[in-house]
Amino acid sequence: MKFGVIVFPGSNCDWDAYWAVRSALGEDVAFVWHKEETLPADLDCLILPGGFSYGDYLRSGAIARFSPIMNAVIRFARAGGLIMGICNGFQILCEIGLLPGAFLRNRCLRFLCCTVFVRVERSDTPFTNTLRSGAVLRIPIAHGEGNYYVPPDMLRGLEQHGQVLFRYCDAQGRVTESANPNGSVANIAGVVNREGNVLGLMPHPERACDPLLGNADGLSIFQAIRHFCSAERPILMVT
């Protein structure tokens, strides 16, 4: 299978994502410069990596959403292609409207760089199909504007349609206020679109893909994507 990693000016987790796919997962991967207008053919999964695209000027992701490649990204999403936006990639997907919501500054007003626990909320998705629902992953976060916000009515819709895929929790999987690092509404760390093929998450699974570095929990998400793509009859999540 083949992954793509988009490179925006200011992306700084592009090589981490590339390495996670190439070395840790052992699959094919190609960079895509943001000024391209088409994606490589035969792409199975596209990654929008973390970083500070366009310096995070105005709002995180606000300017990157107008990059030339983004029209192709929208077409890829509508055709059912898998997209994973990590951190700044999540912010860009929200700005362009492929995912609901927006980001506020962390409640503590500080940039956070640490490892957190997230709970897998459902296992019947392309991104979690090899994990069990309720599983707890240790994944690093690194963001200043990771305080995910949706208005109350939109939050009800997200919950009703099972779009919340990851929630900040403690080591035992309890979703508590003290386990919420940045103030995100309902402890949300990752959401999918209604169709289930576009994921955005603030934690960085690509930074936790090698036991030598102390943590390989993030690799499980990449393995789930591969498992989904290798299935004979891939079934998109129906909500």
Partner: peptide, 8 residues
């Protein structure tokens, strides 16, 4: 279009 995000 750009300067404000209507969600927030």
């Amino acid at each position: 279009r750009l300067l404000a995000n209507p969600v927030i």
